[in-house]
Write a protein that binds this DNA or RNA. Structure first.
Lengths: 339, 339
DNA sequence: TGTTAGCACTCTCACTCGTTGAGTGCTAAC
DNA sequence: GTTAGCACTCAACGAGTGAGAGTGCTAACA
């Protein structure tokens, strides 16, 4: 019997199996379904359907006398269903979470990672998109005690970076401001790249002393390095210990080590511009993540930049909840970074 | 036979047992000692000595036919020996570690935590001492695109904090600087506390607009909160998974949860002003840490402030190495924060 | 034709029970 | 004081066993 189509009842049963497995992490038996979900059908009937579903590749048996476990294909179906009617509801809780403590650009991302990992109880990742062609908007020296000054660079996108440099002790606030003005005049509108080049060439003309100029060059270089690559923040990494899939320490360690390899993770988050993406087990492409799922949502920054927030956890995962948590946090991020 | 004194040979043997146990995490048998450490003595002799040491409370047997395991008392002896001749050698590696990436105050501490956890392969904690009576040194508004400004507060100790606030769009750099000057004039030398109070009272006189003043008040309040309490940075928390003591996931999770309770940890680090301290198992006073040791070193900040760096791991720990790593990082911290 | 009851079968899990090996304590001899 | 030898103990390992969960298949029923 060539059972190609999967009818409504099969789908209901499959759904029930997945739901139960997500809850319990144990292979699901026909009896369980007949009792808890499809009370009008006997276990024998369910068995027949399960057998079909297995043949179709939606279920697998760890061993012959165990219940069934959903396959990647089953999760795929389940998730695709879910993605169709994903309500983009903004969440007050997410917004409230941020209101507490966000000081600087970087804080936004760590806070986001914390929020997601707290809401979902999984490991959260937040990607901050790279920004090319950052242009200097303002450059200012703020006096500090004992012959130091804080050099602040603000870019047109509102990114801020600062560093402490040494300056001659007899420069007071006004003098530093005068220097700041000159510097801003010369350098505003330039890319970080250009700033570095110019500092080599014209250093004398601008009247700054060598230490200041060196400080600017260093900071510009650093900013460029940091902004030219995507950066990744991970939160709640040891949440996995909560899940029986990782009750083996070796596995947990492997997982945690994999998290350290930010480049690979980044690739996972970056390759996606759709609002939501779910990569299940082998679909991640990373052997270390073979029994994990990676759920990501992208958020917008400005007009054409996309970042991503995501959750990494066992394939058995309440995808619906995770998706809405990600969506909520993503929206807050877009709002916060939009300004 | 009242065997009260512990002679040189007993001490050598005890040392050997501890060393071996630190390496292997397995109960040490008499044969092992006789072969690897005291080759001139037979296992039977060692057995006799071990039996004495057990009676003296230095050794314990998990069960009758297992080898011996050092007791807390043994570690205590071992560590006290170690502490006597601790060479305070500064370590080039530690300094080099910092040279890479330290931008701001906070970075110093996370870097320190990373350095320690990388050197020792244990969980590292770094305490940053609270600073009371911070006084404002400079207060400056740096123009940003689109009606925003970066408010920077610098204190007399060189702590820097900033926040983005909204300002009227028609204030240019010079106008902002003028405001900054006035503000600095009024507020320099005041404590953060006073700044908050003054902003309530005199707000009109200073000619700033309400948003600016509110921003300052908020930031001052935040700075005060942050600096008035000790803060703790934890690094390498999942290093414990490397040790067989924590091959049980439940234990590992308990440990990681305990790390979240920063107040309790802080108490451990704070109560010590001596250059080094080792608290072994129950000595920590925390039931969650009953089979951990906490090794701490204090470092100096300025004239009279003390911070602490520390390592938390299983009682079986290469104390010597840990102490010198801590000492090295502590010294670098003192240097860096001394400026 | 779809559903169900019944039954034989399979496989894991938990438990028991020898066996093995590491390690001790004690005694007697050197 | 040191050592060899021996009896003893106990955890760890493996094999064997029974219970329980779950399946597939067949036959009967609506």
């Amino acid at each position: 019997m060539a059972v190609h189509p999967i009818d409504a009842r099969k789908e209901r049963i499959l759904h029930a199996i997945i739901d139960d497995y997500i809850q319990t992490a144990m292979p699901v038996g026909s009896r369980t379904i007949s009792r808890k979900y499809e009370t009008s059908l006997s276990s024998a009937t369910i068995r027949n359907e399960m057998s079909d579903l297995e043949e179709l590749g939606y279920l697998a048996q760890p061993h012959v006398s165990a219940g069934r476990v959903p396959s990647v294909k089953a999760y795929r179906l389940y998730v695709d269903d879910l993605l169709e009617d994903q309500p983009p509801r903004p969440d007050a809780r997410a917004r409230e979470f941020f209101s507490r403590r966000v000081r600087q650009m970087e804080d936004v991302f760590t806070t986001a990672a914390q929020a997601i990992s707290e809401f979902t109880r999984y490991t959260a990742v937040v990607m901050m998109p790279k920004q090319t062609e950052l242009r200097v908007s303002t450059l200012q020296l703020v006096p500090m005690p004992r012959g130091a000054a804080l050099l602040v660079i603000v870019t047109d996108t509102g990114a801020i970076r600062d560093t402490v440099i040494r300056v001659s002790e007899n420069l007071d606030g006004d003098a530093l401001y005068a220097i700041s003005r000159t510097l801003t005049e010369h350098l505003a509108g330039r890319t970080l790249q250009e700033v570095q080049e110019m500092l080599g060439a014209y250093s004398r003309q601008m009247g700054g002393d060598a230490q200041v100029l060196q400080g600017i060059a260093d900071l510009a270089a650093q900013m460029e390095r940091q902004s030219a690559t995507d950066t990744l923040t991970v939160g709640g990494s040891h949440n996995i210990l909560n899940y029986p899939e990782y009750s083996d320490v070796e596995k947990a360690r492997a997982f945690l080590s994999a998290l350290e390899e930010k480049e690979k993770l980044m690739a996972l988050l970056a390759e996606n511009r759709r609002p939501f993406a779910v990569r299940i087990g082998p679909e991640t492409g990373l052997p270390e993540m073979a029994d994990c799922s990676v759920v990501t949502a992208s958020y917008q920054v400005g007009v054409d930049h996309h970042g991503a927030v995501g959750v990494i956890g066992p394939t058995r995962m309440p995808y619906g909840q995770v998706l809405s948590a990600l969506s909520a946090v993503g929206q807050v991020l877009t709002e916060m970074l939009g300004e």
